[in-house]
């Protein structure tokens, strides 16, 4: 645990040089989603299931903003570790475990994802003029957290195992575009082709988005999707760890 703390401290020190970029990104990302996606679509479809569209997309903004931040942070941390700074070679000579090395990048991404979620909750609350009760907020955040965990794991894997920078960008773009525009975060699932929507409804990652929206509309939200997402995130992390364990000291 102590070594993870040291590695996290190193992440904070290393990111001092880009603190302004990180701050602007975290502050502006939810606003950009609200202004560039929320406002235009509100004019096309003012209501979704009897709720104002601008209220309905709030969970989508939370999820996409925090998931993107966590995913990209994990990816950048993993990429730097493996390919850019020879950091891995330095770490491997220290008395720390491969698990600590992996976990530090993952936890760093998680922290940034949670910071982004907090900022998104505050900003969307200010923009739509609605703040939720602690109970409702807690239930919604509980649905968002598993997706942050999952995308932190995914970012770590992508940053470690895809060596070409261009391929990483293309794959990241594909994943984030798909999850942003194809998951029902900003566009209700019933507007997609029926077959596509049916396939998506079976995915726990889409279920997390759907459940958060349901809780917002005072409908019931299932915990099962969140649980499955957490398990998938942990499974990915364990697989990633096993492969790293075998390959890092090859």
């Amino acid at each position: 645990m102590n070594t993870i703390r040291v590695l996290l401290k190193r992440e904070i020190m290393a990111n001092r040089k880009v603190w302004l970029t990180i701050l602007l990104y975290v502050l502006l990302f939810p606003l950009v989603l609200f202004v560039l996606i929320g406002l235009p679509l509100y004019k096309i479809q003012p209501l979704v299931q009897n709720m104002a569209y601008l209220h309905w997309i709030v969970p989508g903004i939370w999820i996409i903003a925090s998931v993107s931040t966590a995913f990209l942070s994990a990816l950048v941390a993993a990429r730097k570790l493996r390919y850019e700074n020879r950091l891995l070679k330095i770490y491997l000579t220290a008395p720390i475990s491969v698990v600590s090395i992996i976990m530090s990048g993952w936890i760093w991404a998680l922290i940034l994802g949670l910071v982004q979620l907090t900022v998104a909750i505050t900003e969307t609350g200010l923009m739509v003029g609605e703040f939720y009760t602690f109970s409702k907020l807690g239930r919604m955040v509980a649905q968002v957290l598993p997706t942050i965990l999952f995308f932190s794991s995914l970012g770590s894997i992508l940053g470690t195992w895809v060596d070409k920078y261009f391929n990483q960008i293309v794959i990241s773009l594909g994943i984030l575009l798909f999850y942003s525009l194809g998951s029902g975060s900003f566009i209700p699932l019933n507007l997609y082709p029926r077959t596509y929507a049916t396939i998506l409804e079976g995915s726990p990652l889409i279920g997390d988005v759907h459940n958060t929206q349901n809780i917002l509309m005072n409908l019931s939200g299932s915990l099962m999707d969140g649980l499955i997402t957490v398990l998938m995130a942990l499974l990915l992390l364990v697989l990633h760890g096993l492969v790293c364990f075998k390959v890092f000291r090859r």
Partner: peptide, 21 residues
């Protein structure tokens, strides 16, 4: 020569020292 480019020389040495407890 492998140094962490995102840290100063002193930080490089301190962090590595801390990793050695």
């Amino acid at each position: 020569s492998e140094l962490d480019p995102d840290l100063t020389v002193l930080e490089n040495l301190i962090i590595y020292g801390q990793l050695h407890h």
